[in-house]
Design a protein around this nucleic acid. Structure first.
Lengths: 223, 223
DNA sequence: TAATTTTTATATAAACTTTATAAAAAAACG
DNA sequence: CGTTTTTTTATAAAGTTTATATAAAAATTA
């Protein structure tokens, strides 16, 4: 059983999806446009969002972007054939899958279950995953992947990276980073952090630029 | 849960907003006019202010301006259709959003949540952001943007600017600025501050005029 | 012993301060 | 008042310092 948010301005579509999803044992919440979807998402945590691209008030892409600023709930997009092909296929927005309208409810449900399976652990708990383009950080499994390929990281690299990702968009002072990764009783060399940042950047390849140096302060992870 | 201040002279409107906001899990404080709003704001810190434009004693715009002199709490304005279109849409007062009266409580709540989400970090903490026209200073991220474009600043520029913005509208003596940015043990040249003010003004472009020279005293940031 | 972490040493790039000069404002003076 | 002098701030450029990146060696840990 998963909590699903269905976002579509057409009542008929919402009901159709709801019917099938409830039949599969899921709990469904509805929203009629992007604005409402965002509003609901700020108050509730869903396991999956099914969202139409074309909607009044606020379109699906914009809503998706807004929602992703807060959390990384999996999103399946519904779109008319040929509609915004690039944006759906691009990883920019971190869309997990898409279904072309008109769709067969059966096919949609297959995709829904596939996504849910990806984001659910064997023990039924939800995976805590951060996604940005082709970079995936699985906090539950302590696994980082780029383009689907596993990125090996040493314990210190993990700690440093996870802390930065968890605090993305926030300026982190060298002191804060050291205190968190090495502990408050670390009196080591000042270059230790640099070295680990260097190793981390090397591991991150093309995403190394996400770690921004804040001269005189520390570092910040941007995504 | 956020702390919201509702400012409107009509009891019915206040109660309506309060009912919905409390339902969404927020904590609501009420004020009946601009004067009272300012008074309350000097004693309390809110996460959001919902304020009517037309009020006795002191109108919403004036109150907004006064409040913004002290802090940059997000503000949503309520206005009758066609009322002061320019001032609401202009960035002058730094209004975050507006809703036309009569409004649907549902729509207002969506906008409330949208604004609150914008000002909340991933970790749930409030983002510390200052906004004036198209100038945005994100203290949490240590990022300055103008027209949405990033403005790169050196550490000293940041320190100087952040201190001035935090003390906007206040005359800051050269001594005070130097003590804060360079520390009390700085015995450098007197031109050092000038040079950094110059660099800062260059970075600020059109907003350079916000840094006013107070001959014989120091500088003041105006916004 | 291999993997990982820390330290050391050095390079490099960025940022800071000083110097010198120009410009502007205020004060002094006739 | 208008002009000159003094004081203060603005600006540009050169010189100096500092912070971080990087490589490699040493130490630690598993």
């Amino acid at each position: 059983m998963s909590k699903i948010l269905v976002v579509d301005d057409e009542y008929r579509i919402r009901e159709l999806i709801k019917k099938y999803a409830v039949f599969e044992g899921h709990e469904v919440t509805e929203a009629t446009d992007g604005l409402e979807a965002i509003s609901i998402c700020t108050r509730n945590q869903f396991d999956l969002i099914i969202m139409d691209v074309m909607m009044p008030e606020l379109d699906g892409f914009s809503a998706c972007r807004e929602i992703r600023k807060r959390n990384s709930t999996p999103i399946i997009m519904l779109s008319a054939r040929g509609e915004e092909y690039d944006r759906i296929h691009g990883f920019e927005l971190g869309i997990d899958d898409y279904v072309v309208k008109p769709f067969s409810p059966k096919e949609l449900m297959m995709r829904v279950n596939a996504v849910l399976k990806r984001t659910t652990l064997d023990n039924g708990q939800k995976r805590d995953v951060f996604t940005y383009k082709t970079l995936e950080v699985d906090f539950s499994a302590r696994i980082v992947t780029i383009d689907g390929k596993r990125v090996e990281m040493t314990p210190k690299e993990y700690e440093l990276f996870f802390f930065m990702v968890k605090n993305k968009g926030i300026a982190l002072s060298r002191e804060k980073l050291i205190n968190h990764v090495w502990g408050y009783d670390f009196f080591g060399d000042d270059r230790t952090l640099d070295t680990h940042i260097k190793l981390l950047r090397k591991s991150l390849g093309e995403y190394s630029k996400c770690i921004v140096t804040l001269r005189g302060v520390g570092y910040r992870f941007e995504a």
